[in-house]
Design a protein around this nucleic acid. Structure first.
Length: 120
DNA sequence: CCGATGACTCTGC
DNA sequence: CGCAGAGCCATCG
């Protein structure tokens, strides 16, 4: 599906989610739940997951920067997307320990904290 | 209309 | 850390 057609078919809530995902900084990660919360949709993480699932590649969303609340990818080990996501993250400096990313080090929220309270 | 199904999350044991 | 249960709710058969 063409990019513009897809976008125009989205609800206001979904467009908001798209904008938030696009604003995740390179080298940072966040969770489905956090995105939903930022979009004013607390408790609706599944909506974010569903959107990423149906979004055309043409949108070029940084889907790899979206993880589950426990710091792992939403894909099971062995799934091509599992390796792809970790590969993309490593490419931008986000490390993982056995498929688990530490939000304290790479979480998007940490950027906000540092801006408010300073490094360390 | 109903039950099943998720790129989810939180609580409780 | 693991697992079950319960919310969550748009989609689909």
């Amino acid at each position: 599906m063409p990019k513009s057609v897809f976008i125009s078919a989205l609800s206001l809530e979904q467009r908001k989610i798209v904008k938030i995902i696009l604003s995740i900084p390179r080298g940072r990660v966040t969770s489905y739940g956090q995105i939903a919360a930022r979009a004013g949709l607390p408790g609706r993480a599944r909506l974010v997951g569903r959107l990423l699932r149906i979004a055309p590649d043409a949108l070029k969303l940084p889907w790899h920067r979206v993880l589950r609340a426990d710091g792992q990818t939403a894909f099971p080990a062995g799934d091509p997307a599992f390796d792809e996501q970790l590969r993309r993250l490593l490419a931008e400096g986000v490390e993982h320990k056995n498929g688990k990313i530490d939000f304290a080090r790479f979480g998007w929220q940490r950027d906000l904290d540092e801006q408010l309270w300073g490094p360390r």
